[in-house]
Amino acid sequence: GKVYCCGVLDTFSRRIVGWSIADHMRTDLVVDALQMALWRRHPDTGTIMHSDRGSQYTSWVFGQRLRSAGLLGSMGRVASSVDNTMMESFWSTMQRELLDTRSWDSRDQLASAIFEWIEAWYNPHRRHSGIGYSSPVDYEHAYHRRVTSQVA
């Protein structure tokens, strides 16, 4: 069977801050990923959440969750992935580095592999040219050290 994954990427650090895996593409898949991002980041009111125009993102439930969190929704043009390049790059990287490397015996096995790839490899170790060849976690730590040292 199929496994669907939704991710929320912080464009500052390229870190996946929310994600969800399911055997369907219904609205709760994207709402669950958004909820994880909200728990992890506690974004300021007015933070922009950009998405594509899939029915999950245009649903009343998703829009209501954005509004209740104080987030501003943003969507690109129909049939354009240009404004979603960072997220498209993430999916391409996951395809190349994980999904194309083998097959899985079950949805649960694949879901576990996706979890491990995001949380144990991509966020803490995978280097990105756009952030000085740092991993997302290292980039964020370095930023917070700089900010803290400037205040002190």
Rank of each mutant, 00 (worst) to 15 (best):
S129N: 01
N84Y: 05
A111L: 03
G70N: 01
V17K: 03
V151E: 14
R53E: 11
D138P: 01
P124S: 00
S149C: 09
R41V: 05
R77F: 01
R15W: 08
T85N: 13
W91Q: 06
A33R: 04
T11C: 15
I114M: 12
I118F: 03
F115D: 14
L29G: 00
F12P: 00
G7E: 04
V30F: 05
M94A: 12
A69R: 02
A152R: 10
Q109T: 10
A152Y: 11
Q35W: 10
W39Y: 09
Y139M: 07
T27E: 04
R67H: 09
R40C: 09
A111P: 01
H128P: 04
F12S: 07
Q35M: 12
I16N: 08
I16T: 08
S135E: 00
V137M: 13
I131M: 05
S20V: 02
W117G: 06
E116I: 09
R40D: 03
M49L: 14
Y57C: 01
S68T: 10
R145T: 09
R102A: 06
L34T: 00
D100F: 06
A22L: 08
M49I: 07
D10R: 03
G1P: 08
W19C: 10
Y139F: 13
F62E: 00
D32I: 07
V8A: 06
S13W: 06
Q95M: 11
F62P: 01
S20K: 02
R145N: 10
L110S: 05
R41T: 02
G130M: 11
Y4W: 10
R126H: 08
A69Q: 04
V147K: 08
L9M: 14
H128V: 00
S68Q: 14
T148D: 12
D28R: 13
S106T: 11
S13I: 09
G76V: 00
G18I: 01
T101C: 07
S13V: 09
R65E: 15
Q150F: 07
D100V: 02
H50V: 06
R40I: 03
G63S: 09
S149Y: 07
C6P: 03
R145H: 12
G63Y: 03
Q95P: 09
E140Y: 05
S13P: 08
T58W: 03
F90G: 00
S134R: 14
R40L: 10
C6F: 07
R40K: 12
L71S: 04
H50A: 05
L71V: 03
T47W: 04
S51C: 04
G63I: 07
E140F: 02
S13G: 12
T101I: 05
S134M: 12
R15Q: 15
M86Q: 10
G1Q: 12
A37E: 02
R96E: 13
Y133R: 09
R40M: 10
Y139L: 04
T58R: 11
T101V: 04
W39R: 14
V3F: 02
S89N: 07
A33S: 02
T101D: 08
R102K: 14
A37G: 12
A33T: 02
V17R: 03
